[in-house]
């Protein structure tokens, strides 16, 4: 830790981010601008999430970092090491053992508790970004809660494709007031955000925005009465643990069309297998 302040950021930066976080919590779903710092990794690698984590993290915390559900991919490993080195905090891969969870594009399958904080890495905090490029305009739309543009987009999807064609980063209304990007989590994870006991914090480093959802806050995925929101998942069971209620990744196994569907949440899958659950692939292996 020599040569660094605790958790890398200097205290003045932490104070600035902490003030932004408190305002974000007080205005659920509203994007609060903050002075995003240059970090020792490029924008797009989770700099927003890292700055939020660095500002909340304390010596007693236990940190878990996941990237698309996995604890062992590059982004997750390097961020976990970053905080192990600059803050000396304990790290874990077990969702239940963590006090702070930084995530890229997934919410763990294990239900989060009210003593946990989940920090999302956000590439594009503005849900209206693809519909209205001007930030001056989108800010005004949020100010007026004028979200007609997004409803038209969803309606046009239904008119064109017969369904809403958004499978990730599916827009949500927070506390009935702000339209919010849930970050690029699969729409499968959207229902987990609704009335979640844990505090949810979002950091967008390149776009310099922080936002938050307090615990137990209503988070509703946009839909229509006759086209209700449907979370999407592959219609399979996990090949390794047999789970049917977890979000699945499709893995290409050979060049003859072989496919394997496995839990995207590696910790969830490993825990299920440790508890004796076996999927179709595991049974094949046992038979060989």
């Amino acid at each position: 830790m020599i040569g660094y302040n605790f958790a890398y950021l200097d205290e003045q930066t932490k104070r600035m981010i902490r003030r932004a976080l408190l305002k974000a919590v007080a205005i659920p779903g509203h994007q609060v601008p903050f002075g995003s710092r240059e970090m020792p990794l490029p924008y797009g690698w989770g700099t927003g999430g890292i700055q939020v984590t660095a500002s909340v993290l304390g010596q007693q915390d236990v940190l878990k970092v996941i990237d698309q559900g996995a604890d062992d991919t590059t982004n997750a490993v390097s961020i976990r090491r970053f905080f192990a080195r600059t803050a000396g905090v304990r790290t874990t891969t077990h969702t239940a053992d963590a006090t702070v969870i930084q995530t890229r594009h997934r919410i763990p399958e294990t239900k989060l508790r009210d003593d946990q904080i989940i920090v999302y890495q956000v590439p594009q905090p503005e849900p209206l970004f693809r519909l209205e490029p001007s930030r001056v305009e989108t800010r005004r739309m949020h100010g007026l809660a004028d979200y007609g543009l997004m409803h038209v987009k969803l309606y046009e999807d239904i008119a064109r494709y017969g369904q809403i064609s958004i499978s990730y980063d599916y827009p949500v209304m927070v506390n009935g007031r702000y339209l919010m990007s849930p970050s690029p989590i699969p729409s499968f994870d959207n229902p987990k955000m609704d009335r979640m006991p844990a505090l949810q914090l979002f950091g967008a480093g390149r776009e310099k925005r922080i936002y938050a959802i307090p615990p137990w806050t209503e988070v509703r995925s946009l839909d229509f009465e006759d086209h209700p929101f449907r979370p999407i998942n592959a219609p399979h069971a996990c090949g390794l643990c047999g789970a049917t209620d977890a979000y699945l990744d499709e893995v290409v196994t050979d060049d003859r069309g072989g496919r394997l569907f496995v839990c995207s949440d590696t910790d969830h899958c490993a825990e299920r297998r440790a508890a004796g659950h076996v999927g179709a692939e595991g049974m094949k292996e046992a038979a060989e």
Partner: peptide
């Protein structure tokens, strides 16, 4: 201990604001 105490105080305020 400004670093650790400010962090502990912030977490208390953050939790208080969130709940």
């Amino acid at each position: 201990d400004p670093v650790a105490q400010a962090q502990a105080c912030f977490r208390a305020v953050l939790d208080a604001m969130a709940r």
